[in-house]
Structure formats: C-alpha cells, structure tokens
C-alpha cells in the first residue's frame, strides 16, 4: 500500500472518529472526552526509548447502548523521545558513534467497548474496557545528518481501566490507565507501552 493510499485511509478513519466525537457531543446518551496522556514504554519500545513520554493527547467518543455498556472510538497521539549522547552501535563489521535522537510517534485509532460499575451517572463510576484496531507508528533514529525511519500501519489492542468523577451535571474528570500492545509490521519491533490519561469528559 503506497503512502497516498495510507493517508487517504487515515483521513477517512479520522473523519469517522471526529464525526463520532461530534455526534457523541450532541447525543444525549453519549460521552466524549479530551485527555492529556503520558506514556511509559515497556518491552522493546522501552529498550528503544527509556524516557517516558509527556507529549500526548487522547480524544474519545462513547455512546451508551445500555446503562452499563458503551461503544465508541479513540484517537491518541503519543510522542516518545530520547537523546543518546555519543552512543556507539555496530552493524556487521562497521561501528558507528554519534549522538542519536530517537523518536516514536504512535497513533492508535481504536474501536472501543466499556463496562461501567453502578448506574447513577452523577456518582463516581469505575469502568473497564478496551479497544482494538490500527496503529500508525513512526519510529525514527537521527544520527549525524542521517535518519533511519520506519513508518507503518500495525494492528494492536489496548485494555483499559478508568474512573469518571463528576464535577457538574454534564462534566466529569476522566482518569484512565491503559496498556497498548502493537504487533510488529514488516521488519519493525512489536511495541508496547502503558498510558495514563487525565482529562475532561462531557455528555450524559
């Protein structure tokens, strides 16, 4: 699949997700949220970049199909970054030494379902759930004036636990903790990280 097709598909998916957000905003049985997201790489992602990510955001839209169950969509952008000063690495018989700048931009585009404890929407509600779907992951290493980049579509899933804390009739504070696992694509590594999101949620 060429880059143009990928971009067109991504635009369609984003359009659907944005439409979902907007419809959730106007739907009496919907909930939408905007969150600040921090991420902590583990596994091979953590080996590649040890520093946690403090650059991230998450948009979510959820529609309730019963008192306890919602379905919806999620879009996250998380950026991992680490500078390795004077790092040395080998490739076959060659040895390279230079300051490396490592980046991962991860874009999960997930379909989600959640189960909520309790039925009173004006009380604090815990929820469990998760999502699955495509992830766009752009992994780049800059060293010297050179750059090595892997940009691919992956498939992954993400279990989640969270809580909604009401602060007004239609506004809540959302706190969620989730784990992402992303299967490898082509020659890439498989990625995994934990994400902590804090934000505001609106709706009924």
């Amino acid at each position: 699949m060429n880059d143009l097709k990928k971009q067109i598909i991504m635009k369609y998916i984003l359009t659907i997700l944005v439409a979902l957000l907007i419809s959730a905003a106007g739907y009496s049985q919907g909930l939408y949220s905007i969150n600040y997201t921090t991420s902590y790489g583990v596994g091979k992602t953590g080996d590649y970049i040890k520093s946690p990510s403090f650059r991230g955001m998450t948009f979510e839209g959820r529609g309730f199909i019963s008192d306890h169950v919602s379905i919806g969509g999620l879009f996250t952008w998380s950026t991992f970054y680490e500078k390795l000063g004077g790092a040395t690495f080998n490739y076959e018989n060659a040895t390279f030494t230079g300051t490396q700048y490592r980046y991962i931009n991860a874009f999960p585009l997930l379909v989600q379902a959640h189960y909520y404890l309790g039925v009173d929407k004006y009380e604090t509600r815990l929820y469990l759930g998760g999502g699955l779907g495509p992830y766009i992951i752009n992994q780049r290493t800059n060293v010297g004036v050179w750059s090595v980049e892997e940009k691919n579509w992956h498939f992954g899933f993400s279990p989640e636990v969270g809580v909604l804390l009401p602060i007004s009739m239609d506004t809540r504070i959302n706190v969620s903790f989730r784990y992402h696992y992303v299967f490898k694509a082509k020659d890439t590594i498989d990625h995994s990280w934990f994400g902590l999101s804090v934000g505001l949620a609106w709706g009924e």
């Binding site: 600040y36 650059r55 955001m57 970054y81 390279f96 300051t99 700048y101």
Partner: peptide
C-alpha cells in the same frame, strides 16, 4: 492540548551534535 503537546521534542542544537564517526574493517 495542542499547545501542550505541539512542542516537538528536540534534536541537534549545535554543529558538534551532528558529528558521526564510522569505522569499518
């Protein structure tokens, strides 16, 4: 959120940050 997150992480700041040494044998 964009204001908080759009500050893209840094890269090389000085010319010496771009130095690369390669040996092969």
């Amino acid at each position: 959120v964009f204001t908080l997150t759009a500050c893209y992480p840094g890269g090389a700041e000085y010319t010496s940050d771009t130095d690369l040494v390669v040996t092969d044998y």
